[in-house]
């Protein structure tokens, strides 16, 4: 069998890096390495133009950021619009957390009332209350069917933005708020898109979701997409404890 290799583009790693979101890349790298898959990580930095071919990537990742930082990078993100659209058409897997999720929609109106235009790749949009204390904060559990069966995704949400007009949500909220305060659904997804408010980081406590992303990325290459099981005893014990604690309330 030939060596399996994936390329991940981490956009704005030093700007969109709130709440340990870069941990998602660390989890993907770890789970790839356990299967002998090399994960090469490339970066796109703000105001540092590069010629990276986004469509040559297998996964594009955007984390979450503070309002101030999201404003700063809006222009740079806009300059990447064509490349991101093309990558999406070429079935590159898009993983976006919080700020990344918001910025790929139509627009984001932040807690200062400032309207930041989004890329408009997806039709949802987000508005935050100008009361900075009005935020959805806490542990959250979302049930998704993206991975081919019902799977409970555990994370932490902390967002002022309320996202509406979401055509295909990532999952159903079992505990927490989701896209809007006391909402029923959370995030946005397609076969090769996950956009969500979940920090934690997202992939740390949801190994099957991480593996779904890896195998979809391999599948696009036409490579063998089967992933051998690895030692997930800690993750399983952690999930069992948190699901009991949060869902029995």
């Amino acid at each position: 069998m030939s060596e399996r290799k994936l390329k991940l583009l981490h956009m704005y790693p030093n700007v969109l890096d709130l709440y340990g979101d870069s941990g998602n890349v660390e989890v993907l790298r770890y789970r790839c390495a356990q299967r002998g898959i090399t994960l090469e990580v490339y970066q796109h930095l703000m105001n540092k133009p590069d010629n990276t071919d986004f469509s040559d990537m297998d996964i594009i990742y955007l984390g979450g950021g503070a309002d101030y930082e999201q404003q700063l990078l809006a222009d740079d993100l806009m300059s990447c619009k064509d490349r991101i659209f093309k990558a999406y058409e070429n079935k590159v897997f898009l993983l976006m957390i919080c700020g990344g999720y918001q910025l790929l929609g139509k627009y984001y109106k932040d807690s200062n009332g400032e309207r930041i235009p989004g890329l408009g790749l997806f039709s949802y949009h987000t508005e935050a209350s100008t009361n900075k204390r009005d935020r959805c904060i806490g542990n959250i559990i979302v049930e998704t069917e993206l991975v081919g069966k019902k799977y409970k995704v555990i994370g932490f949400e902390n967002h002022g933005g309320q996202t509406t007009d979401v055509k295909t949500p990532f999952g159903k909220v079992l505990h927490g708020n989701g896209n809007v305060r006391s909402g029923e659904t959370e995030g946005y997804c397609e076969e090769r898109v996950i956009a969500t408010y979940l920090h934690g980081p997202l992939l740390s406590k949801n190994p099957q979701l991480a593996d779904y992303i890896i195998s979809k990325a391999l599948e696009r290459q036409g490579a063998d997409s089967t992933l051998a099981p690895i030692n997930d005893k800690l993750e399983e014990a952690c999930r069992k404890e948190l699901l009991t604690r949060l869902l029995s309330k």
């Binding site: 941990g23 989890v27 770890y30 740390s204 800690l234």
Partner: peptide
Amino acid sequence: AYDIAIRIKCSGYDPDRITV
């Protein structure tokens, strides 16, 4: 306790040497 164990494991540390 489990969260920090997973964190340390994913940095590449041998999970068999972690006791929760």
